[in-house]
Design a protein around this nucleic acid. Structure first.
Lengths: 330, 330
DNA sequence: TTGTATGCGTTATCAT
DNA sequence: ATGATAACGCATACAA
C-alpha cells in the first residue's frame, strides 16, 4: 500500500495525502478527513526508506559497541535510547566483538547515508580509526576514549584511580597489587595504570613488578592475573581496573585459602549493578554509563542540528568512590 | 559522491559502475579497473538507502526488546548479531522500556519497509500485539512468549521449574516459598508459578499463601517480596523465578539475621554470569539466551528466504539445572 | 487549495 | 560489453 493507492481511494492526489501525513501545506477539512479515514481504514504506514531517500535523512543513529552483551555497553545504549526516543530516532547497532577491523568497517558502512550520526564506544583508537573518521560525512561522537578532533565523552580515569589509590593507602595498605589490561586501550590500560604508578611514587612506595599483572577484560582474566601474583607474593590489597577483574581476583584469592577482606582487600572500577550484592560488597568507583550515553546522544544531536562546523569538545563524566566492605583498614 | 560522479570520473556510464560495484553483468577488464581505481581514489561508498529502495529490502533486522540494559536482552541481541553478521545484516534496536504501547508502535513502525524481518523478545502478549503482528508485511519471530501463528523461541519453563522443585524437595525441604512476577507475563509469571503449585500438589505439600509473593523483575523487588514473606513465616527454602529476585531475597534474609544456606536455601532461574561468583554461589537453572537469539535469527532468515507461506513452529531451548551452594540438604 | 511532475541514488531492462 | 532510461515511494516546486 503506497501513497498513490491511498490517493486513489480517497479521491485526491498523492500530494494531498502527503500533506495530510506530514501536516503541512494547505488541505481542506473535508479532504483531510477523507484521507485520514482511508489511512486508518487500510492501516497505511509510509515507506520509511523512500522518505529517507527523499528527505536525505534516515532518522537513524548508528551505535558501534565492542560487545553488546556487556553491562557497560548495554547501559550506554540504554542512555542513548533515552534521548533518541524523544527525537523519534531509531538505533542501528553494530556489535563489533572487539574486532578492530569490524569497527572500521562499521564506521564506513554506517556513514553511507544510512545513519544521520554515529556514536562509538571505543576501546582502542588506531590511526586507521582516525583516518576513516575524518572521511565521515556524518557527525561522530566517541565514548570512552580520546580522539583528536572529535567530541569525546570520557571517564575521568586518572583522577578516579588516584582517589581510589589514596583511599587504599590511607586505609593502611603498603603492598598494593595492580591488575590491568593491555596498553592499547589508552584510557583503561594506560591511564589507569599510570595513575597507579604515580600513586606509588607519590606515597614513596616501591614499584614491584611481581605485583602487577596485565590481562583481558574477563572475570577469568582476573582469576588468572591474581593467581600469577599470588605465586610470587601476597599483597594486602589488590586494585583491579574493572569490577569483573576484581571478581575473578577475589575468586582466586579464596581458592588459595585467604579471606577477603581480612587477609587481602580488593577493589574494582565501574560499579556494576551486582557489585553491592557480592560478599563482601565491592569497593569500587561508580561510573554512570547510562549518563555517558545520554550525553553522547545530546552532543550528537547538537552537531546534527547546526549547519556550521561544530567545535569538538571533551566531556568528562563524574565518578564516585563507593566504599564497601571488600577493603579493610589495617 | 554518487554513482553518476564516479561514472563521469571513470569515463563510463552509471550502469557500468553499478555492475562493477555489484559484480554482475559483463564489464571489460580495463573498464572495470578504471572504475575500481576511481572508487578507491575517492573512497566511494554507495548510498544504502537508495539501494534499499530499489532492491525493496534494507538488509536490516528489527529487534524489539523490553529493556536493553538487562543481561538477558543483551545476550539475546549478542546471539542475533552472531548470525546476522554472516548475512551482512544490520540490527535496528527498539528499546521499549517495558511499555506495551512502545512495543506495539515499534512493531508497526519497523515493518514499514524499514526492516526485512523482526525479532521480538516479549514479556507480555496482548490482543493488540497479535492484531498488529497479523498485519505485518515482514516475518516475525517471538522470543520468550508463545504467540499463536508465529514462530516462537521458548524456554521450557514448566519443566525447568518442575525439575528444580523436585530437586529442592529431594534435598529435604518442605516449606518452600515462591517469589514470582505478574501473571500477565505468561511464561515467567504464570507457567513458572503453575509448576510450583503443581509441584506442591505432586509432593502433597500444602499451599500456603503466606509463602508466596509477587513482584516486579528487579533485585529490589526480590528484597521486598522476601521481607513480606519473612514477616509471616520462615521457610526453609525460597524459589525465586529469576536470579535477580533471588539476589534480592538473599539480601533480605541476611538483613533479618539468617544465614544462607544454613537457615534458608535460595534458588534462582536464569544463571546470570555472576551467579557463580555470588557467595554462596547460586543454585539456578541455566538458560542459554545467546543461543535463543541465534535460533530466532536463523528461523527469521528461513522465513525471509522462502517465498511461500512458512509454517509457524515452537522451538524450545534447552536448560540445565545448575547445582551450587545456595541450597542445602536437610 | 489542489494536482502534476520531478528528483532523491540506485538497479535492471532494453537497446545498441 | 555498454549505455540510456525507467522505476522504487515519497515530498515538494510549481502550475493551476
Amino acid at each position: 500500500m503506497k501513497i498513490k493507492d491511498i490517493a486513489k481511494l480517497a479521491g485526491v492526489s498523492p500530494a494531498t495525502v502527503s500533506r495530510v501525513m506530514n501536516n503541512n501545506g494547505y488541505v481542506k477539512a473535508d479532504k483531510r478527513k477523507a484521507v485520514e479515514a482511508v489511512i486508518k481504514e487500510v492501516g497505511y504506514q509510509p515507506n520509511e526508506i523512500a522518505k529517507s531517500l527523499k528527505n536525505q535523512k534516515s532518522k537513524i543513529i548508528g551505535v558501534i559497541v565492542p560487545k553488546i552483551s556487556t553491562e557497560t555497553a548495554s547501559r550506554i545504549v540504554d542512555g542513548i535510547t533515552q534521548v533518541t526516543k524523544t527525537r523519534n530516532y531509531q538505533l542501528l547497532i553494530a556489535n563489533t566483538n572487539q574486532q578492530i577491523e569490524e569497527e572500521i568497517n562499521s564506521l564506513k558502512f554506517l556513514s553511507n547515508k544510512l545513519v544521520d550520526g554515529i556514536i562509538m564506544s571505543a576501546t582502542e583508537v588506531t590511526d586507521q580509526h582516525i583516518e576513516v573518521a575524518r572521511r565521515l560525512t556524518v557527525p561522530l561522537v566517541i565514548i570512552g576514549q580520546k580522539m583528536e578532533g572529535f567530541t569525546c565523552v570520557l571517564y575521568n580515569n586518572y583522577n578516579a584511580v588516584t582517589d581510589l589509590f589514596n583511599y587504599i593507602v590511607d586505609s593502611g595498605h603498603q603492598e598494593i597489587a595492580f591488575i590491568g589490561v593491555d596498553q592499547r586501550d589508552i584510557e583503561v590500560g594506560q591511564i589507569r595504570k599510570q595513575a597507579y604508578l604515580d600513586g606509588l611514587e607519590r606515597h614513596q612506595l616501591p614499584y614491584n613488578p611481581d605485583l602487577v599483572a596485565i590481562e583481558d577484560f574477563s572475570i577469568e582474566s582476573g582469576y588468572k592475573a591474581m593467581t600469577r601474583i599470588l605465586e610470587k607474593r601476597l599483597p594486602t590489597a589488590v586494585m583491579a581496573v574493572t569490577d569483573h577483574l576484581a571478581i575473578g581476583a577475589i575468586q582466586a584469592i579464596r581458592d588459595c585459602g585467604y579471606r577477603i577482606p581480612e587477609d587481602v582487600s580488593v577493589t574494582g572500577i565501574g560499579d556494576i549493578k551486582l557489585a553491592q550484592y557480592l560478599s563482601p560488597p565491592l569497593t569500587t568507583v561508580h561510573y554512570n554509563f547510562k549518563t555517558s550515553g545520554q550525553i553522547a546522544a545530546e552532543q550528537l544531536f547538537n552537531q546534527m542540528d547546526q549547519e556550521e562546523k561544530y567545535v569538538a569538545e571533551d566531556i568528562y563524566i563524574d565518578y564516585d568512590l563507593v566504599i564497601r566492605n571488600s577493603l579493610k583498614k589495617r
